[in-house]
Simulated assay, not measured.
Amino acid sequence: MTAAPVRLSHRPVDRVVWDAAAAPELLSDAPDLAALAAGMRSALPVAPSITPFDTAEAIRPYRHLRAFYLRRADGVVAVKGSEIMAGDVELHLRLLGGYRIEFPGRGRSLFSALEHFPLNEQKIPLALSVEEAVEDAVSAAAVQRAHLARFGCRARIPLPLLAVRWPDAAAEAHLRRLHPLLSGRARRTVERVAADGLGAVVYHYPAVPLRVAHLPELLRGRTGAGGGGGGWIARLSTLADPAAAVEGWLDLLARLFVLGFLPGSVESIGVGHCLEMKNAVIDGGLVDMGSVCRVEDVTEPCRFLETLLAGLADLAKTCRQFLLGDAVDVEAEYRNPSLAMVLMLHRLLPDLAARVERLGGADPRLLDVFRSAPAASTLPAEARRLLPAADTGGGHA
């Protein structure tokens, strides 16, 4: 833990924009969480620094730039979006401006991390728009409500407590710091995304939500149980149970399917899909549920298949990174798809299909995709469904 205590302060909010009190069944067995949420309706705790810290009261793990976590006996309460109040926010904005993101197999981005968030993800660096805060809370609450009704317990995803809007003065101060550091296009994107203000979301999670994307840094210097250097799995096993994590993701995804949800819409790809490495938690849970959409809302056949397959591809990529993190880069390993991805899909899809069938109640279109069938008779039609433009017949006369 850090030697010096991290003194949290409380900052007033402008107003509550989503409240778990509107979904009382979610907290019916957790009156202390309901009381905690009620006590935060006028002011939220704020950490003084974006630099990682770890104390008896709270923790901000490495690379958690938009959230810190209050420790509890039953897990943590996350405060996401308060960083605009941190004393070192301007320093961290400048650090992001000097850092280039590395994409596996593609090299360094031409954008700094500061430009990447508005230009590639439509997000505000080190801040949360009101729209994103409400989206996260509403989506997670919908899944939790359905999961509780069907399975009698909460899912291993965020349990939203509050979403708030910060006072205009606080938001404007953050945008004033940010604007001189951005290109014209990034600045205009930030202005559009921030049009309804900046906010924060508060949620409960059963543990500190360490993500798959952060494993290289989390495992740096760790050794296997026997004290030797060990390989990736040996080091990973000092921090997580690999089999239990994969089991958790599969079970959670199968439950999402039978509850009538898809893990992400097409527009969420690359922006915050809950199955991506940066949102898959190494304990088998998922966070950042704003990507989730309802199966019934995806009506067009091609879009449904694209949405489903994109989620499955993200799951396979997350498992690949989780289980083979320090292996040869995927694009250097073999032609696309890589051998590792073939292995992941070969094992994951039949297991997931069996879980969905066993639980029962899934949309028939999901069952159709998962159902075993002869490739020669089904693939041509399915390929045309996925890529309808290839079957337009507009070739040479």
Rank of each mutant, 00 (worst) to 15 (best):
V193Y: 13
L253W: 03
A137T: 04
S129N: 02
L239F: 10
A200H: 07
P61S: 15
R222W: 09
A375W: 12
V266W: 00
A354C: 12
L315A: 04
D32V: 07
A3N: 11
H64F: 11
A316T: 09
L305S: 07
L309G: 09
V16S: 10
G107V: 08
L259A: 09
A3P: 04
V79P: 02
E333P: 12
P160E: 00
V266Q: 02
I124V: 15
V76M: 12
F322Q: 01
R66M: 09
P61K: 08
S265I: 00
L308N: 03
S265Y: 03
P167Q: 10
L349R: 00
D136Y: 12
R11F: 00
L379C: 06
R63G: 11
G325N: 02
G226A: 07
S28E: 15
A225N: 08
A23C: 13
S377W: 09
H147L: 05
V193S: 00
A22R: 11
E191S: 13
V298Q: 01
I84W: 09
A4P: 06
T299N: 08
P242K: 01
L215R: 01
P104I: 05
T223S: 14
H147K: 03
L175V: 04
R320M: 11
S109L: 06
D297V: 02
A225D: 12
T223N: 13
P242V: 01
Y62A: 10
M85A: 12
H346Y: 15
D297F: 07
F322C: 03
E83D: 11
R222F: 11
E276T: 10
L126N: 02
E267D: 14
A340N: 11
A37I: 07
F261Q: 00
G260Q: 06
R106T: 01
R60E: 10
A354M: 08
P158G: 08
L175R: 02
E296M: 08
R355A: 09
A280G: 05
L252Y: 03
R145W: 04
A86S: 14
K80E: 08
V328H: 14
L8W: 01
D54F: 10
P118D: 12
A23T: 15
P160S: 00
S109F: 09
R72C: 06
Y205H: 15
F322M: 03
A163I: 02
S372C: 13
R187M: 03
M40T: 07
V6N: 02
A353W: 11
T378L: 06
L250E: 14
E132P: 06
L148G: 06
C319M: 12
E300N: 09
G230P: 05
W166M: 11
I50P: 05
A245Q: 01
D391H: 05
P388D: 14
A375M: 06
D136T: 05
D32S: 05
V138W: 03
Y203E: 01
A225L: 08
D368N: 05
A332L: 14
R7N: 06
G221M: 05
A140I: 04
P337R: 07
G248V: 03
R71G: 08
P206C: 07
A163L: 03
F53H: 08
H396E: 14
R220P: 15
A133T: 03
E382M: 14
L366T: 01
K317F: 13
V356N: 02
